[in-house]
Write a protein that binds this DNA or RNA. Structure first.
Length: 602
DNA sequence: TTAGGGTTAG
């Protein structure tokens, strides 16, 4: 211009600068669908339908109003030219789909097709494109395949080594695609990493049920002096909660205090949950009392913790206090309080809360709430009422609900009813291992060995295997695993001798083995032998052997404790003067002085 | 405009 050369100005966005500014202001103010529609009319009238800046803002506004379909129809209507669109616009579009909660058909990944359109329009992706794309794809059923394509694309466009992109990929493989091992391959090759990288790996392991590997990674992080941040701690706490690693939870909490890691609410909630799930419900309550700010998650976590520990009265007290504190219970909070009632056998209270849900809070009960009610009736032996409840459910009862009823039939000796439900369930859901196990157990209880073996045969024909019982104990910060009947463990040295001693001592104290639990057609003497092999018994013998007198014994088990172990532990707690705490699949049994905190309520 | 996160029936 200086020299009088006429520089061609870039093609002016249609509509002109003033209209553009006016439209942007209108979009800022479009806080309702109605206003957004008015803005759309203005936008079209001013000829701004190909202005990328305006359109980007439009997408963002539509996204926050859950009206992405409007953005789509505006952007891709036939009379709009895409030649002026830019990468930013497509990124926003992809990101909006990553964060939207639109129901998604398996084969319909809008975000991915936007990516294709973007390339088709001759636009290059940038470093923001791939994290957004991966997040959007993680919602797909066939996420693995699509993610692989995104990964290849990222490499092709030169973003394969970008830390943000790699972290997204780690998260994608380990969490969305459910394949932490593929994530690990990438992780091992990464030249650089940050706490986000490690968190993505740790979180992936927790999600896929490999909490032991998650803890191992956290330890590796420590040994390499990579400082974790609060998210890494939250995820490691979740792993500890899963494993029942109380010592590690306490260590993590002291680490947070030592290193001045910000005690954000979500971190405190994670500690509450981990303490409760590791057996220290009193510690969780104490921390809860100290928390300056509590969300509904904090309340729900503690109520759920109390439920696990059979402390129904306290759970109810807390639920009422929560309401007084002005917190409106949500659907999850009701699951917790109903669970608390079920675990403590509080039928009337449970019924009260179930009807209060709809009457006072307009929350429609979901299948989980019905599940709690069925559990509530079943546990106390009101099986007819439980069945009646199932029949009145407005939705199809889930296999889990049937299994609760079946479990109760077994505990309450309702063999015919239990067998009938178990048979129906197996017909409906022939791919679940426990459906075979429970049915074969009813046959065994009825001494119908042929039918029992027939069921087991059908199970193996389907290629389904029984999940072995497994118990974990934490000793000096190490986790020891015991698998039912497994002799391979080094620490078994002396464990079997210990079992013999225990067996002798508790029999003298009046313990009678519960033979029904073995459920094998072998002679009585062998049966009693087989009982010793339950993983929780091995674990108890191990801890009795390795720890000084009176040290409490804490066990985490992957299945329900069997009636025989339950009876034996009551006796052991008395004879050896030890507190034994067993965390079942979902609750705690605290054996002390010959009794259990569950009051024999299963 | 980038990445990782807390409560949920057995």
């Amino acid at each position: 211009m200086k020299h009088g050369v006429l520089v061609p100005s870039p093609p002016a966005p249609s509509g002109g600068r003033a209209a553009e500014q006016a439209c942007l202001a209108l979009l800022d103010a479009s806080t309702s669908l109605h206003r957004l529609l008015q803005t759309t009319a203005f936008l079209l009238k001013s000829g701004l339908q190909s202005n990328p800046l305006v359109l980007t803002k439009f997408v963002a506004a539509a996204s926050s109003l859950h009206a992405l379909h409007l953005a789509h129809s505006l952007l891709f209507s036939p009379h709009v030219s895409t030649s002026l669109y830019d990468t930013f616009l497509f990124n926003t579009l992809i990101r909006s789909h990553a964060h939207s909660h639109l129901p998604l058909a398996a084969d319909n990944c809008r975000a991915f097709s936007y990516f294709s359109s973007m390339l088709h329009a001759g636009l290059l992706p940038n470093k923001f494109t791939f994290p957004f794309l991966l997040k959007a794809c993680s919602r797909l059923h066939n996420a693995g395949n699509v993610g692989f394509q995104v990964h290849a694309s990222a490499i092709k466009f030169g973003f394969g080594a970008n830390l943000f992109v790699q972290n997204s990929l780690i998260h994608f493989y380990s969490a969305a695609a459910g394949s932490p091992d593929s994530a690990l391959k990438l992780f091992d090759r990464m030249p650089q990493s940050n706490p986000v990288t490690w968190s993505a790996m740790i979180g992936g392991y927790v999600r896929s049920g490999s909490s032991d590997k998650a803890v191992a990674l956290f330890r590796e992080m420590q040994s390499r002096a990579i400082p974790p941040d609060e998210v890494t701690i939250i995820l490691s706490l979740a792993a500890c909660a899963d494993l029942g690693a109380l010592e590690l939870v306490r260590w993590l909490w002291s680490y947070v205090n030592r290193k001045n890691i910000p005690k954000v609410l979500s971190l405190c909630n994670a500690v509450l949950d981990a303490l409760a799930k590791c057996g220290d419900i009193d510690g969780a309550m104490a921390l809860f009392e100290q928390m300056p700010v509590r969300s509904i998650v904090s309340w729900t976590t503690v109520i759920d913790g109390l439920a696990m520990h059979s402390r129904g009265e306290e759970a109810i007290k807390l639920f009422e206090l929560m309401k007084c504190a002005g917190i409106v219970p949500d659907s999850v909070a009701f699951i917790s309080i109903l669970t608390a009632c079920a675990h403590a056998g509080m039928v009337n209270e449970g019924c009260h809360y179930f009807s209060s849900m709809t009457a006072d809070f307009s929350i429609e009960p979901q299948i989980e709430h019905y599940g709690c009610m069925v559990d509530l009736f079943s546990r106390v032996g009101m099986l007819e009422r439980g069945l009646d409840f199932v029949k009145k459910m407005p939705m199809e009862p889930s296999p889990m609900i049937w299994r609760m009823l079946i479990g109760a039939c077994r505990v309450h000796g309702r063999l015919e009813l239990g067998e009938r439900i178990a048979k129906d369930l197996l017909d409906k859901d022939p791919m679940h291992h426990s459906n075979y196990v429970v049915l074969s157990n009813f046959y065994a209880l009825k001494r119908q060995w042929d039918k029992k073996w027939e069921t087991r045969r059908a199970m193996s024909e389907h290629g389904i295997r029984k999940v072995p019982g497994c118990s974990l104990v934490e000793l000096d910060g190490e986790i020891y695993e015991f698998i039912a009947g497994d002799e391979s463990h080094l620490h078994y040295m002396g464990v079997y001798e210990m079992l013999e001693e225990i067996s002798l001592k508790i029999k003298l104290a009046g313990y009678v083995p519960v033979m029904e639990e073995v459920l094998l057609d072998i002679d009585e003497e062998d049966k009693e032998d087989a009982l010793h092999w339950h993983s929780e018994k091995l674990a108890v013998a191990f801890v009795l052997l390795k720890t000084p007198p009176r040290t409490p014994i804490k066990i985490v088990k992957n299945l329900r404790v069997c009636a025989d172990c339950h009876a034996a532990f009551k006796c052991i707690s008395n004879v050896y003067d030890r507190e034994i705490v067993v965390r079942d699949t979902n609750r705690f049994h605290r054996f002390k002085g010959g009794a259990c905190s569950c009051k024999d309520f299963w």
